[in-house]
């Protein structure tokens, strides 16, 4: 666009040519439309789910959700059923409780351990530090599906070398198997958490650390009093990431839990439709119950999420 290069140098072009103006207005109008289209397109699917969840089940089967605009008909029956029914195809309230009980430690444990590890990897000098960090980074790609069987047999059979039991079998049952779910989630969340926190911690100004050390602070004191307060945004963002992951998990909960009694919300979603898939009309309500909590949390904490993620990894 060589013509543009010839326009006057003083601030905004004073005498904008007509062509340029049209182009500018057009592009701004185009921009508005494009942004609006994307926003609408992105919202329609979720809106469709929400509307479907409020429709009578027979209607869901018979017509599309958009027909409510011409022929409105709403009910809370499906919500009532999926939340409180005693049937196998409902009673999500118990799964909601399971999900909450699973999620809290499933977020706290890996974030705490990752913070400690990330500190050691970024501010304590020891041999093989970089190698260890790279190894942990690479672990991000191990598909967790392949870890299910070995980890499960670790819990159910313990760890033996020959006849020597290094760790006995856990023999947990019922509700207590949730402990296994906590540990599994912690393990699978660690590599990403360590990676992000490490990125963030390395960026801390070294003179602050130096000063603290000269003042005689030990590593554990520096970690607690200097580093932790400074990396709070990063920790918040990783906690949100991990929260989403644990809440939305489908495999870990059903594998390491003790059956029906401990299943989290997302894991039962797929099973709700019944043996022959005939109860799929309940899925919108069930799915909406499952997604509303992470959505609200996510939207509320969006700012922290971005701040932490960005500050940690932008440089490079």
């Amino acid at each position: 666009m060589s013509t543009d290069m010839q326009t006057p140098v003083q601030g905004r072009p004073i005498a904008e040519s007509r062509g340029d103006r049209i182009r500018r207005v057009l592009s701004s109008r185009f921009a508005s439309i494009f942004a609006l289209v994307i926003a609408v397109l992105w919202t329609i699917p979720t809106a469709g789910l929400f509307i479907s969840s409020l429709r009578p089940e027979d209607d869901i089967r018979a017509s599309g959700w958009w027909t409510v605009f011409t022929d409105p008909s709403f009910t809370l029956d499906t919500y009532n059923y999926v939340l409180y029914s005693d049937s196998q195809g409902g009673g999500l309230i118990r799964n909601l409780v399971n999900t909450i009980v699973i999620t809290i430690p499933g977020v706290l444990v890996p974030v705490a351990f990752a913070a400690m590890a990330a500190y050691a990897l970024s501010w304590i000098d020891f041999k093989g530090r970089n190698l260890l960090y790279i190894a942990i980074f690479a672990l991000q790609v191990v598909p967790l599906q392949m870890a299910l069987i070995p980890l499960l047999s670790f819990f159910s059979q313990g760890l033996h070398i020959g006849d020597l039991a290094i760790m006995p079998a856990w023999n947990l049952s019922g509700v207590n198997t949730i402990v296994q779910v906590w540990i599994a989630h912690s393990i699978f969340g660690l590599p990403l958490a360590i990676f992000l926190l490490h990125n963030f911690m390395r960026e801390l100004p070294s003179d602050v650390m130096e000063a603290a050390r000269i003042d005689g602070a030990s590593h554990s004191q520096i970690f607690r009093k200097v580093v932790l307060p400074l990396v709070t945004p990063a920790i918040a963002s990783i906690a949100i990431f991990q929260f989403l992951w644990v809440w939305n998990d489908f495999l870990v909960g059903r594998t390491f839990g003790g059956g029906e009694a401990t299943r989290p919300l997302t894991a039962v979603l797929g099973d709700m439709a019944g043996t022959w898939g005939f109860g799929w009309t309940r899925l919108p309500a069930a799915a909406f119950i499952a997604i509303i909590v992470p959505l609200v949390v996510f939207l509320l904490l969006q700012r922290y999420f971005v701040r932490g993620l960005l500050a940690g990894s932008v440089k490079g």
Binding site: L152, S153, F155, D271
Partner: peptide, 20 residues
């Protein structure tokens, strides 16, 4: 304790191989 699974085949495989 009955558990009905929509992923019966894979759940069985994981649990039996995992000793559970």
């Amino acid at each position: 304790d009955y558990e009905g699974s929509g992923e019966f085949e894979s759940d069985m495989k994981v649990r039996v191989d995992g000793g559970n």
